[in-house]
Design a binder for these strands. Sequence first.
RNA 1: GCCGAGAUGGCGAAAUUGGCAGACGCGCUGGGCUUAGGACCCAGUACCUGUAAAAGGGUAUGGGAGUUCAAAUCUCCCUCUCGGCACCA
Length: 817
Amino acid sequence: MEYNKSIDKKWQDFWDRERIFSTDTKNTKDKYYCLVMFPYPSAALHVGHARNYIIGDAVSRYKRMKGFNVLSPIGFDAFGLPAENAAIKGGFHPKTSTLNNIATMRTQLKSWGIGYDWDREVISCLPEYYKWTQWIFTKLFEKGLAYKKKAAVNWCPSCMTVLANEQVISGSCERCDTKVVERDLSQWFFKITEYAQNLLDDISLLKAWPERVKTMQTNWIGKSTGVNIEFKVEGEDKILTCYTTRVDTIFGVTYMVLAPEHPAIHDLIKNNPDKQKIYAFIEKARVQDKTDRASETVAKEGIFTGRYVINPVNGKKVPLWIANYVLMEYGTGAVMAVPTHDNRDFEFAKKYRLSLEVVIDNPKGHLDTTKMNAAYVEDGIMVNSGEFNGLGNQEAIEKIADWMEKKKIGRRSVHFRLRDWLISRQRYWGAPIPIIYCEKCGEVAIPEKDLPVYLPENVAFKPTGQSPLVDSTEFLNTKCPKCGGKAKRETDTMDTFVDSSWYFLRYISPKEKARAFDAALVNKWLPVDQYIGGVEHAILHLLYSRFITKVLCDLKYIDFKEPFGALFTQGMIVKNGAKMSKSKGNTVAPDYIIDEYGADVMRLYILFMGPPEKDAEWQDEGLQGSWRFLQRALRLVEMLENYKDSKENKELNNYEKDLVRKIHSTIKEVTQDLESSFQFNTAISRIMELVNQVYKSINEGMVRKEIFREAVSTVFILLSPFTPHIAEEVNSALGFSGSILKRKWPDFKEELIKTEEIEIAVSVNGKLRDKLMINVNWSKEKIEQKALSSSKIQSFLQGKLPKKIIYVSGRMVNIVI
RNA sequence: GCCGAGAUGGCGAAAUUGGCAGACGCGCUGGGCUUAGGACCCAGUACCUGUAAAAGGGUAUGGGAGUUCAAAUCUCCCUCUCGGCACCA
């Protein structure tokens, strides 16, 4: 038997015909929802994508054989920037190119033998899907969870258009190289911050998520508890509130800093003769990259406002500055600066010669402001802090907070790093935000009966990159659904992350016309039992999906709080040390591999190349190994057919016992590898070992046909989640009818795995010196005795008595001398 | 910069979670088979030292310290690589 392409086709057609992968969602007994992150149809899929779907397919096939009623759907995250860019460059309409890409990808996925329920396919750029994305928007809007506010965008003054972060190349427009500026636009947000605490608390429900993803989400939400403190502006009835987590340093404040975006600045500097200079500084700071501004390494820059504020705890007057290192997005946009105990403040104070005062002393030696060359950020003893002197600073945090609350000069406050989700995009290729602006009624959401708001298809793509919706008068002008008066449509579209925040619900009832999903069924099928995708989605996509799920739960559309019960994040496949991308030109197309070797060779290699959660380097040569192994395994099937059964006695001989042991231990280990985590690489290596051993025992000619047959059958049933086409072929050659997926995953018998005789290591002072065959029933004393009596060990002992002997059961003896 | 992950032979990796480092595969070397093979079968393969060949030593899991009878695994410090950082998806 030889593996070739016709085998792939034969079994793919068979699965299709028998509808093996179509799932009856009405039957919810033993349900198992296996979900892979749906792809963005950029162009053809490369082997990096393939890894995701192959892992998902291996899991879903394994679970089917374990008797689960598996649902494995697929769809396409089809809105997005690249298709629109291509259209602007003069190519196809985004819809055409996207649907073409989808057609290619569909063919690819099928040619790899990935088993999906294709009747459930969802495509997020089609009205039957985005109608419901819009519906979700209106539900959030009704709930007050969607609102408008001003927010900064990247603006190219030459193209007169908004740029995505990706389109800004080191501060300049990717298209025309003009310096990009920040510009405030009124934009739509989802109030995810209202769910910050909730999203944080429920991380504890995510038992089967990787720790690292949970940590990243926790840090992203970034809860901190501190105190809001009100500083009076000198000579005015104005108050500036700052937020600090280090209220213990409040007596050491020597100046205050505002973010350049702070709304109070305008008023504060209106009488300042130098205000033009200040405005110039603000403009400059706002152009700087935000991650740079927040980083400790980038030069701190600031300007004095000419005003002073009063520290409420001691009445001290301190100067008020504006600086690039303060961000409006976090806290209150105003920071009390304590240069002696914060490194950024320290650097800034040194640069602008602002004064320093120590309020937390180092217990190991007094701090001297004239000699400090960095802030003292460790714990210490309170000094220069009035009645709090002498306390430990950790203790003082609580005491000072109490005291300030009593005196009504500060309030305990919780802050989150998480910001509201900006969902407006000034682009064409996305779901239109279903809002109209009525001259009388203001912002009005489109009622469900009028959804979807169709994205007009007959539009022109100008090279400026401005959304064509702005010029489409036919789209723009409409009537108010409330009063029937004149109204204009919102021209922004939604972030594609909104599309992907609920697609897993749509799969359950994808054809549903009257509602987004069949809630009763969704409640039975979700949470997803296993979600599989790239670790690069660890924060945004997963957080947004959790948020939308929680909102829908609170609105009583669904009755579960978390969408994904278990999560597996696979690593990237890299080539020449870099992530595969078209721009780097290092993608590996699977098509030639399928052509040359067949789908199973590619699948096997991708699963074998390394642990699936880690990045792996693609090497074409690896395919050879998989090819060779599969051919070698197939040759066993031929050998079996021609095998002459020797007339054996009833007792199994040692070759047979060993082979039976190997069969059962392989089943055990492969099953464990799949159950505990997705260790496909080691599972496959164990099957390789079994094949090697079958060759050995058959070459000896001492094995009866029945056991040989069991070995071959085991090899292919264990391989079937990984190399399904070959497995089906062998399965039918062995005389089984129907799909191998309908057979049960094999069980192992523990008593057939056990052995009496094992080899253990003997070491002296931790260094391996000898090996020893022991019987597992021997006592500890007997084993230690045997170890000591070996001549090799004796030569190390040189007649001396050992200090100590450590015996690790069934593993080793260590003799300490 | 912040958050997260990682570093083991020539290469991809394994190591029962503190107990024989390098399973399995690639590559390479030698042999067999073959008209031929980038096919197949068998054997060998961390490094240094040693030897005619062995035996035998010694050194090794990014670097440095530490804990332990015993460390790839635990602790501290350092270096480098990768992912995310809110308008790529």
